[in-house]
Design a protein around this nucleic acid. Structure first.
Lengths: 163, 163
DNA sequence: TTAAATGCAAATTATTTGCAGAAGC
DNA sequence: GCTTCTGCAAATAATTTGCATTTAA
C-alpha cells in the first residue's frame, strides 16, 4: 500500500474519530494491497492472512466505513454479491467493461465521456456526484480467431461462503 | 400494455416454448402495465391485483425469463433489492440519473454518449452488448431555492417484505 | 396424456445485529 | 475508566428450491 493511500486513510480515521485496531489495520491493508475487485468474503480471506483474529462481522462493519470515506467503491457487476473496487484512489474516474466471454473486467477512463456526463447532468438540472458506466461486451478476438486472449487471465471466481 | 409490446412477449414465449398460464399473463401484464421501476415484491403485489392466485415463487421464476428475453432489464439502484425497469422496450438506450436529494430517478437518452460508448468498446477490442450509465446527482434547485421540485413526486418506497 | 408450471413451505445465503468481553485512548 | 471495537452466534431478509398437485397443449 502506498504512502499517499495510507495517509488518506489515516486522516479519514482521525476525522471520523475512529480507533485504530489490529483488525481494521489488517482489513484496510488487505483492501488496498490489491488492485483486484473483491467481495466481503474475499476481503475476509485476505485480511485473515495478515491477522488471524479478523472476523467476518468486522469486515462487514468496516466496509461501509471505507465506502463512506470515498476510498473504496461499491461495484455493480450484476452478480449476486456486492463487489468492491479499491482503484478509485488512483483513478477516480474509471469505468468498467465486463467481458461476457471470460468475465474479465477491463477498467478504462475517458475524458470525453466524463465531460459529456457532466453536461447531461447539468442540462437536467442536477450537479453530478457519483458517475458510473458499465459496459458488457463480447471479445472481438474470440469471434474472429476462436480464442479469447482474456481466458488466460480468467478472473478469479470466489468459492461459496463456507460458513 | 401496448399491442407491439404484447406481440414481442407472445413471440418470446412461443420461441422459448413456454406455456401461457393465467399467472404468467398477470405477471407480464403487471410488469409492462407500468412505467415505474419495481422490485420482485412490488411486482407480486401488482400481479395479484390482476390475478389472486399469483405466488411469490412464480414471480421469482418469471422475472429471469423476462430479463433473458431482453424485454425487462435489471436495474442497479445501489439499494439492497434488485429493481427492474420495463421501459427498455420503448427506449432501448436510456440511462438513469438518481437524485440524492429525493431519490427520484430521471431517465435520459443521449446519442453522443451512446456513440462514444461504442467507440471506446471497439477501441478496447470488444463488441458492445449491454451498456448502462448511472449518475447520482444532487438537485440544483434545492441548492439554490431550498426546495426540491422532485420532492413533490417522491418515488415510492416499498414496505418491508411481510412474509 | 404428459411435460411444464404452480403454490407452499422449507432451504439457502449474503448481510446485519445483540451481547458480553477486550482493548484503544 | 470509559467508550469504542471485537468475535461469536443468532437473526434477518431476499431469493431459490423440492415436492406434490394442477394445468396447458
Amino acid at each position: 500500500m502506498q504512502t499517499a493511500v495510507r495517509e488518506k486513510i489515516e486522516s479519514f480515521l482521525k476525522t471520523k474519530g475512529l480507533r485504530r485496531t489490529v483488525q481494521r489495520d489488517a482489513i484496510i491493508a488487505a483492501a488496498f494491497g490489491t488492485t483486484d475487485h473483491f467481495t466481503a468474503e474475499d476481503l475476509l480471506d485476505m485480511a485473515r492472512k495478515k491477522e488471524r483474529s479478523v472476523s467476518r462481522a468486522t469486515v462487514y462493519r468496516t466496509l461501509p466505513l471505507l465506502v463512506e470515506s470515498g476510498l473504496l467503491r461499491e461495484l455493480d457487476l450484476g452478480r449476486d454479491q456486492q463487489y468492491y473496487d479499491p482503484n478509485f484512489i488512483e483513478r477516480p474516474h474509471h469505468n468498467h467493461l465486463i467481458c461476457l466471454d471470460c468475465d474479465r473486467i477491463v477498467e478504462f477512463e475517458d475524458l470525453h465521456m466524463d465531460v459529456l456526463e457532466n453536461c447531461i447532468t447539468k442540462r437536467l438540472g442536477f450537479t453530478p456526484a457519483v458517475k458510473m458506466i458499465r459496459i458488457e461486451a463480447t471479445c472481438e478476438q474470440l469471434r474472429t480467431t476462436g480464442s479469447c486472449p482474456n481466458l488466460t487471465r480468467r478472473s478469479r471466481r470466489s468459492s461459496r461462503n463456507p460458513r
